[in-house]
Design a protein around this nucleic acid. Sequence first.
DNA 1: TTTTGAGTTGTTCGA
DNA 2: GTCGAACAACTCAAA
Length: 480
Amino acid sequence: MSDARQDPAAGAAIWWIRRDLRLADNDALAAALAHARRVVPVFVLDPALLNSPYAGSQRIAFMLAGLRALDADLRARGSRLIVRRGRPVEALARLAAETGASAIFAEEDYSTYAKRRDDEVLIHLPLRLVGSTAVRPPGTVLKRDGTPFTVFTPFSRAWLAQPLPDEADLRPAPDVLPDPGNVAGEPLPDAPPYSPGAPFPPGEAEAHRRLRRFVAERIDAYSERRDRVDLDGTSQLSPYLRWGMLSPRAAVVAALTAQRDPSDPAGRQGATAWLNELIWREFYIHILDHFPHVLRGSFKPALRDVPWQNDPADFAAWRDGRTGYPIVDAAMRQLAEVGWMHNRARMIVASFLVKDLLIDWRWGERWFMQRLLDGDPAANNGGWQWTAGTGTDAAPYFRVFNPTTQGQKFDPEGAYVRRWLPELAGVPLERLHEPWRMPAAEQRAVGCVLGRDYPYPVVDHALARERALAAYGAAKKRPL
DNA sequence: TTTTGAGTTGTTCGA
DNA sequence: GTCGAACAACTCAAA
């Protein structure tokens, strides 16, 4: 073991890539390079992940395209990506035997499956988990009594109280990488190609371009504009953070730098708000690590047994974007088409599924995982439990979003709805978020007849709201 | 141990 | 149109 450390030339190291598809600021890669002169970058196509009911073809296509981009970046530096297939413990054991690697370096990941997978590899192989999908790994932000936070605000205070990273802490991408040598690999599979012209071109270079543009052009107005679904007010970096094309530390450093920028004191609010979102990401990573049962059901015992309606036809209407509520349908079609949805829209459609349709939040959680490029168990579960009122620090159960009001507030000119629902193009703005209020003659006049061109609402929101409050009330009264 | 202040993102109703 | 209160207590975190 000490041989390799004393004489790096003696051995090889494996850099096991999982969700850190980048060369810059990659602790696992840096550790592998420090350990041995020969480094073998490998990605293992794991059937357990590819065939999971929570996998999504668009997300896998995004990942595969990201791996192609990473391979190109590696080749430009003298290396290349080795692709293997199979159970990671077996694929890595073979690769280690073939290459004589004395260590495997990987970034730590905290989802339930990832922990189980890595524990198994740790038993059999010299795996070293270096670096983290979070800036502050779970276990490093705790209450004074050593237990985890379950409320966000004190968590974020404690998170911010620790030493903050700066530019100097970010590792630049290496200019040159060692040749991995003569190692066999298989070609990346031809997934349904992630569509050209898609709004999320995969890759590390694109991630950094976006971060620079966001910081230069939009971060200052982030607080005011981030809730508007019709504007590009958000960073739109989530798929890149999900796949580690951008390190979370680089994102945090960018936020802190913008926050300190003396040339624009007014912009500090935007940078602070965005930093807060990044801390939410960390919060849910920690929650999943400390409370893995959240993936199976409610965090709050009192809301384990809400009497859900779970009507398959209602679920299909939601999933396919034909609930008759334009803001909901527009968002669901955006999700289906581009694999991404605005954060505000996520809350609106989630509230609609859970509260208006009274469908178990886990159905929505799974559909999101099947569609989102940024689908991540921790953030997705946290978001759904928050909306459902079942999670840590969750929305009070009586908080039911009104889809009409939300549409009017956050898509005030109707551009979002009209973009994703062309059948509503002719509907005047005053009726755009409640087309069922148009008299029959007006429907004909504007070319949008309900029941023909666009559905009637699947539920009456006011009634649905009462039903949801009653169902949650019943769940709370039920003895545990 | 007890106390106290606080808690992402809303809606509705009535004054 | 605008504003504050009610929604429902509860649990958390920290002093």
